[in-house]
C-alpha cells in the first residue's frame, strides 16, 4: 500500500537523523571507559587472613580521627574543627565494612593516597603498621558492619562529606535541621547558624580539594549510569588529574549510592512506570475506535 511506503520513507529518515544526533554523536563526543565491575584489578588480593579480635585492639589508632558511632566511639573533634584541621570531616566507620571493598581497604590502610589515586596532600596518613594489621582492622570493620544499610547511609559514608545533595536536604555537615523561625521577626537563627557552618565547611573543603565538589542533587540526569559507575570506580579514568579520590566501594555499595541519587534526581521514575502503561493502553483503544470511524466514513468513497 502506498501510504505504508510513504510512512517507511518518513520513518527511515527520522531514524537516520536520530541515530546520527543521539547515539552516534554521543559516542564520538564522549570517550568510552571500560568498567571493571568494582573488582579493582590493579590491587592485589591480600594473602593474609584478618582477625577481627586483633582488629578491635588496633582500632584505637583509627579512633584518633574517626568516630564509630555504632560502637559508642565518638569523634575526637566536632565536624567544624575536623574540617578546619583536615580540610574534610573524616567519615564515621560504622558502615565502612558494608560498602567498601575488602582488598581495597587493606591496601588503603597501608597507603591511602596511592590506593585512592589521590593528591599527595590526601588527609589520611598510612595507618596500618603491616599488611596483617590492616587485614585485622578490616576484619573488625566487617564484623561490626550492619547486614543491610539504607541508600542514604551508603551515600553519607562514601560521598556525603564532600558532596551535598540539596534535593535530599543533605549538606556536607549533615541533614538540614528542622528549625522554627521566630514568629515576631521571621528570623530563623538556628538555620542561619547552620548555614554559616556549611559555608565555612565548604570554604575549607574547596581549599583542600581545589574546588567545591558539585552538589549531586540531579547528577543521575546529567550523567549516564555507566559514566557514574566507571567514574566512581576510578575518577582518573574520565578526568585525569581530578582531586576526587577513588573511594573503593563495592558493586553493591555503588548500587545503594545510585539508588539514593536516583531518589533525589529522578523521583518520578516509579510514577512514570505506573502511569505509562495506562496512558498507552487508553491510546491504543482510542486508535482502534478512530480506525473504525475512519473506515466507516471512507467506505465507498474510492474505486
Amino acid at each position: 500500500m502506498k501510504e505504508l511506503k510513504i510512512l517507511a520513507v518518513v520513518v527511515f529518515f527520522t531514524l537516520v537523523t536520530y541515530w546520527g544526533v543521539e547515539p552516534y554523536a554521543h559516542s564520538v563526543m564522549h570517550k568510552h571507559v571500560e568498567g571493571h565491575d568494582f573488582k579493582y584489578p590493579d590491587i592485589n588480593a591480600s594473602k593474609v587472613k584478618g582477625n577481627a579480635q586483633n582488629g578491635k585492639n588496633l582500632i584505637a589508632s583509627c579512633a584518633g580521627c574517626h568516630s564509630i558511632k555504632s560502637q559508642g566511639i565518638k569523634a575526637p573533634m566536632d565536624v567544624m574543627n575536623a574540617s578546619a584541621t583536615y580540610g574534610v570531616n573524616p567519615p564515621d566507620l560504622s558502615n565502612a565494612g558494608a560498602i567498601f571493598d575488602e582488598k581495597f581497604l587493606i591496601a588503603f590502610l597501608q597507603n591511602p593516597a596511592h590506593t585512592a589515586k589521590a593528591k599527595p596532600n590526601f588527609a589520611m596518613p598510612p595507618s596500618a603498621g603491616s599488611e596483617q594489621d590492616a587485614a585485622d582492622i578490616v576484619a573488625y570493620l566487617k564484623s561490626i558492619a550492619p547486614k543491610e544499610i539504607t541508600p542514604k547511609e551508603a551515600y553519607v559514608t562514601a560521598c556525603g562529606r564532600c558532596h551535598a545533595n540539596s534535593y535530599g536536604k543533605w549538606t556536607q555537615i549533615g541533614d538540614v535541621p528542622k528549625t522554627k523561625f521566630n514568629i515576631k521577626t521571621k528570623n530563623d537563627v538556628k538555620l542561619a547558624e547552620f548555614k554559616i557552618n556549611v559555608a565555612k565547611y565548604q570554604d575549607k573543603l574547596a581549599d583542600y580539594m581545589g574546588k567545591l565538589p558539585p552538589d549531586l542533587k540531579v547528577i543521575v540526569r546529567a550523567r549516564s549510569k555507566h559514566f557514574l559507575e566507571t567514574f566512581v570506580e576510578d575518577p582518573q579514568s574520565h578526568l585525569p588529574g581530578t582531586a576526587m579520590p577513588r573511594v573503593g566501594v563495592t558493586k553493591e555499595g555503588f548500587e545503594k549510592i545510585y539508588e539514593y541519587l536516583e531518589s533525589t534526581g529522578d523521583p518520578s521514575k516509579a510514577k512514570r512506570e505506573k502511569v505509562g502503561p495506562i496512558v498507552l493502553g487508553f491510546l491504543v483503544i482510542f486508535a482502534i475506535l478512530a480506525f473504525l470511524w475512519y473506515k466507516s466514513q471512507w467506505k465507498g468513497l474510492k474505486d
Binding site: 491510546l283 482510542f286 486508535a287 478512530a290 480506525f291 470511524w293 475512519y294 466507516s296 466514513q297 471512507w298
Partner: peptide, 8 residues
C-alpha cells in the same frame, strides 16, 4: 475521521 486516526 482520517485526521483523528492519524492523530491517534
Amino acid at each position: 475521521s482520517k485526521d483523528v486516526f492519524v492523530l491517534s
